[in-house]
């Protein structure tokens, strides 16, 4: 195990990384339904685009086999192992703040439900910067190896391309503070740094089915009635207020192209300035 050297790292090791490592298998069984905006973002990437999935979890966005090729990474070795079954994509174990990728080589990146696990404002901005740094630089004047996919309408591949390329784009998702209609009921004014329980069930099979029926609720399975033998883990989250994600992106040197709210989460599509 890494030997964390700052309080924030130690905190995240205890209240995020270790938890996911332990709940990986159960967590994965509740993560199967892609969120529509993420799916649309992936499906609108030109064919053959190269992407990064930062914090890929069990790899639920690595299921699509044709359109794009992605390198996924997760901080949890157990989740990365599960995710690595999604051929033809690749999966590695890596930390968002120390990604082993050259800068500027990816056409797109997604970072879904990850950055809210970082425990200081500076680390969250740094994480956004790490994601943005992966992206192809805007415009074109430089660079030989990073050919441009300007249009999906040229199936013969890159080469023609115009000069007004915006560079790669990243889709970032974080949990929202404003979710008064969710069963957690947080809303504006509530404490933003919270601990969220995950109940690891001992008896599995029947409850598994019950959970599936509930459909799209991302956190289903986490907080049901605790029974004997169940083990509760607490995960740290920073709940984002309206506008906070956009502000983080700007501080990280990015430009917000689109942003919005979907089902208890804030999302934004950004590129490098």
């Amino acid at each position: 195990m890494p030997n964390p050297s700052t309080p924030a790292q130690t905190y995240e090791t205890n209240h995020v990384h270790t938890v996911y490592e332990e709940i990986a298998s159960h967590f994965s069984s509740t993560r199967y339904k892609p969120w529509p905006i993420v799916q649309t973002f992936l499906q609108t990437q030109p064919q053959g685009s190269i992407g990064a999935d930062i914090g890929c979890g069990n790899g639920k966005y690595l299921r699509d086999k044709s359109q794009v090729w992605m390198v996924g990474c997760d901080r949890s070795t157990n989740l990365a192992k599960i995710a690595s079954k999604n051929e033809p994509h690749s999966v590695i174990v890596a930390d968002t703040l120390a990604l082993p990728h050259p800068n500027g080589v990816f056409d797109f990146a997604i970072c879904i439900a990850v950055i809210h696990h970082l425990s200081t404002a500076a680390r969250r901005v740094e994480a956004v910067k790490c994601v943005l740094d992966l992206l192809r630089r805007p415009c074109s004047s430089s660079s030989s190896s990073t050919s441009i996919f300007t249009s999906s309408a040229t199936p013969s591949g890159p080469g023609g391309g115009g000069g007004d390329d915006e560079g790669g784009k990243a889709l970032i998702y974080v949990w929202a503070l404003e979710q008064k209609d969710s069963r957690r009921g947080w809303d504006e004014g509530h404490e933003q740094d919270v601990m969220v329980p995950w109940v690891l069930k001992q008896k599995k099979e029947k409850q598994e089915k019950g959970r599936r029926k509930k459909g799209g609720d991302e956190e289903v399975g986490a907080e049901e009635t605790k029974q004997e033998g169940d083990k509760t883990f607490l995960r740290y989250y920073h709940l984002y207020r309206k506008g906070e994600l956009e502000s983080d992106i700007e501080q990280a040197g990015g430009v917000v192209l689109e942003s919005g709210y979907e089902k208890d989460n804030w999302w934004a599509i950004a590129r490098l300035r």
Partner: peptide, 18 residues
Amino acid sequence: EYAVKEGVANFLLPGHLV
């Protein structure tokens, strides 16, 4: 050196290198 196990490479760094 980064280890590759069961086909998955691990890039987590020891604390002093982060």
